[in-house]
Write a protein that binds this DNA or RNA. Structure first.
Lengths: 146, 146
DNA sequence: GATCTTGCCGAATCAAATACATACGTGGCT
DNA sequence: AGCCACGTATGTATTTGATTCGGCAAGATC
């Protein structure tokens, strides 16, 4: 994991369709060497996958909210994760320090769909309350700084 | 934006390296037709970009926190966004309803780096306070549901 | 009914990914 | 010093897939 690898990662985060030849040039390596490094980064799991960034608004998901979830007891077990994963609106779910003890990122088409998502969360066993923070506007969103 | 487009999006979110021929087969189209649809999705901005998903832990960023930011006055202007963007630890920044009025997703290598990030946020003009929610464990994180 | 537009197909072409054989440099060992 | 062994780079095939293109069919428009 040297500076070259970091540059490759940053470059691929910007545009994963960049040809290896061009990548190599940017870091002073041959295309084949760049390819080999990227292959290893994938192998080691540094690069989890190649994906596309879909504009949520373009697919109708105009409502974003963070939901802080209050739990009766410790809800750090995998069942909790699965229960949240079963709700298609939940994009992220974390265990957090303090009370509330869970945090979920929820994206919905409308506020009434958001309400439906909240109901889904409330119905999970052990959930005693939620507090929702509605996002009005997103300044920016960017990949991990490498 | 029909069912086929949505399937293509979902498939590309899973793996953007899938050949068009395979994509086409999955939706009952030729490779060329699938290619044309994806090209248009890009053109229309539904697909923002092709990128890689980097494991934050693999690049040392082991600490994740959400920071709720209290502001003296309305801080919805672009300067606020720029000020937050200037902090490399801030991955997302949103304007939210209520007080606190801003929310930032912060990723750092260590807690002391997190502290440094918080200092950076505090130093932004108009910020009167912050409340930090530290993530202990991430259940999951997945792309927009299409 | 003539014409346009849109979306699809299959084939041809072209670019890039991948595999391969080979060199180079570095550290450890005799 | 001389000699591996290993990891990494290079340049060159070879293969794979992206991209382009002409043609065709199904509506929509007038």
């Amino acid at each position: 994991m040297d500076e070259i690898d970091r540059t490759l990662l940053a470059r691929l985060q910007q545009d994963a369709t960049t040809p290896y030849a061009a990548l190599g040039q940017e870091v002073g390596l041959s295309g084949a060497a760049a390819h080999e490094r990227v292959r290893k980064l994938r192998e080691r799991g540094v690069i989890r996958r190649t994906t596309i960034d879909v504009d949520p608004a373009a697919v109708g998901k105009g409502v974003l909210a963070y939901v802080m979830i209050e739990a009766a007891a410790w809800m750090g077990g995998p069942e909790t994760g699965e229960a949240l994963r079963a709700l298609p609106w939940v994009e992220e779910a974390h265990i957090v320090a303090g009370s509330p003890s869970l945090l979920a990122k929820v994206r919905a088409k409308t506020t009434s769909e958001l309400q439906q998502a909240l109901k889904g969360i409330f119905d999970i066993d052990g959930v005693t309350g939620t507090q929702t923070i509605v996002v009005l506007e997103t300044f920016f969103q960017r990949p991990v700084d490498v």
